[in-house]
Amino acid sequence: MNRGLFLRELRSNAMALLVWTAVITFLTTATMSLYGIFLENNAKILAMVSILPEGALQFKGVSDINDLFSVLGFYSANNVIYMLVLGSIYSIVLSSNILLKEEYGRTAEFLLSWPVTRGQVFFSKLAVVVINIVAINLIITVAGYISLETCKKEPYNIDAFLIMSLYTLLLHLFFAGLGLFISVLVRKPRPVTTLSVALVMVLYFIFTISNITPDLSWAGYVSPYKFIDLDVVNPAYRIEPVNALYLTICPFLLIFISRRIYLRKDIYL
């Protein structure tokens, strides 16, 4: 790893980290502040949900409407959109651009003509990606915990909350690996932000469709979301070893392959 490059990357990505963290924290806490009103309008909400098409709640990862009336269920339903989708977009955009921006910005012609190996560039940037993702997850987990403690009307399973937060972190690391992998495959230097965002949305859509349509449930395994257990209200909620293994091994593999490709990649400017 190269210290100068690492610190420079950390600084140049600080603003994006700040903005994304602020936005997701605000959305999470603002939505949680509606929990009390949600409970008070219990009957009206049940009536409204009854006219929604079947599977509409699945879009927010909710299989049973009654789960929403527990504080953790309510948090989880919002967490899906804010952390599992927006957070994944942040992770993939950050990682898919961190190497590639040196190429389309033509700064690689400086950076890679200085005495630093490709491996050092890769690991310095990877370290920044991991630190940023851990940071955003830590801050939002703390903000989520404070929201839950503030809004709760009855006790909730804190372990389930922590497990869900861990799943979220692993998912973000998966998308970070995927972003790096996409970026090293790009030959013509250009930003891949649109492609990355679209990929997250498509994978989430596949996951949702596979949940709604029993015939397509197999297709869900294409998406990493399938390996996230969202049933936090279930008393037996725990870390599934297979899921955790999948979400740990895949990013490692993606990062390992990306590094191999990057070491031999032609830098077109």
């Binding site: 700064t107 012609e109 400086f110 003509s113 200085w114 005495p115 190996t117």
Partner: peptide, 19 residues
């Protein structure tokens, strides 16, 4: 490559340092 680059200076045709 790294040994070479530590002993070499390079002026690229289009200069685009970090803006």
């Amino acid at each position: 490559s790294k040994k070479i680059r530590s002993r070499t200076g390079y002026i690229p045709s289009e200069a685009s340092p970090w803006p």
